[in-house]
């Protein structure tokens, strides 16, 4: 298979990447693909078992679970990407400053990063959502991002510190390149690959964290086709209507598994030492 890049030759990574591509496609095309809207149906149609009319059955509000699982790709991918956009940019900025700037400033930034790293993610998110007093997807995104940037800052700091010492940066410096240029041209590209690996793995972790928050009672807005919320809300009907919990649960599982497989693949590609071959 000459055309495939190396990491994709691992069948599991291939499957994972395929699922991710499918996930993004579903998120984009949900209105086209879904037979029903995410909230179409009435209480009269509730708890219909899986069948030709409703492939995954209907939920406690009478909504088509198949459609909701498809639409659910949107908040899953969306909130994940927003959290990542916030945390990678904040994390990269802090990391670059901490790693590149010498002295007290770098030290302070590092300590602030350490403080946020010290919080277990779910606990901090839980406290923040409660403090904001808003149980919306936005509140969850804010709450998760508050902790999530810290590992990126760590990664970027470590990379920056390592690269800073390397000769080519020294050389670039000595020929008078300005700091910003050094940062952009030399440090950032090198920090890029571990950040991408971490981000891929994190997309899965974010989905799991929002699901756990939903379980605790801090979910997205009522009626939102959010997988975590669907499982959390559906668990009280599980004994009689298994499909209400099963399908969104499977969606979570596949999405998270895919991001993990792809993340592992990306890591193998970027860091040959860790390759399991």
């Amino acid at each position: 298979m000459p055309v495939l890049p190396k990491p994709l030759r691992n069948p599991l990574v291939l499957v994972g990447s395929g699922v991710i591509v499918a996930l993004f496609l579903v998120a984009a095309l949900a209105p086209v693909l879904a037979p029903y809207g995410p909230q179409s149906g009435t209480l009269l149609d509730r708890f219909e078992p899986p069948g030709p009319r409703h492939w995954f059955g209907t939920d406690s509000s009478g909504f088509d679970i198949f459609s909701r699982v498809l639409y659910g790709a949107r908040p899953a991918v969306g909130s994940g990407l927003i959290v990542l956009a916030v945390s990678t940019s904040a994390g990269t900025a802090v990391g670059l400053l901490a790693g590149y700037g010498r002295g007290a400033w770098g030290e302070v930034l590092l300590r602030i990063t350490d403080v946020f790293l010290a919080f277990p993610g779910l606990l901090l998110a839980m406290a923040v959502v409660a403090a904001i007093q808003q149980r919306t997807l936005w509140a969850i995104v804010v709450a998760i991002s508050l902790r999530w940037w810290a590992p990126y800052a760590r990664i970027v700091t470590a990379q920056t510190l390592a690269i800073r010492e390397r000769e080519y940066v020294e050389a670039a410096r000595s020929i008078g390149a300005r700091h910003l240029r050094v940062l952009l041209r030399h440090v950032l590209p090198n920090a890029f690959s571990p950040v991408v690996v971490q981000a891929t793995l994190d997309l899965g972790a974010i989905i799991l964290t929002t699901a756990a928050l939903s379980f605790i009672g801090f979910g997205a807005e009522p009626g939102t086709p959010d997988w975590g919320r669907m499982v959390a809300d559906g668990r009280q009907y599980m004994r009689d209507h298994w499909w209400v919990v099963l399908f969104p649960g499977i969606a979570i599982f596949f999405a998270v598994a895919a991001f993990n497989l792809a993340g592992d693949g990306a890591r193998d590609a970027f860091d040959p030492r860790l390759r399991g071959e």
Binding site: L12, F215, G228, F253, V256
Partner: peptide, 18 residues
């Protein structure tokens, strides 16, 4: 072990618990 690892990483804890 690969399958177990995948389940452990990807399945929500409350789902497994139930």
């Amino acid at each position: 072990s690969r399958a177990l690892a995948l389940i452990g990483v990807a399945a929500p804890t409350f789902w497994i618990g139930l």
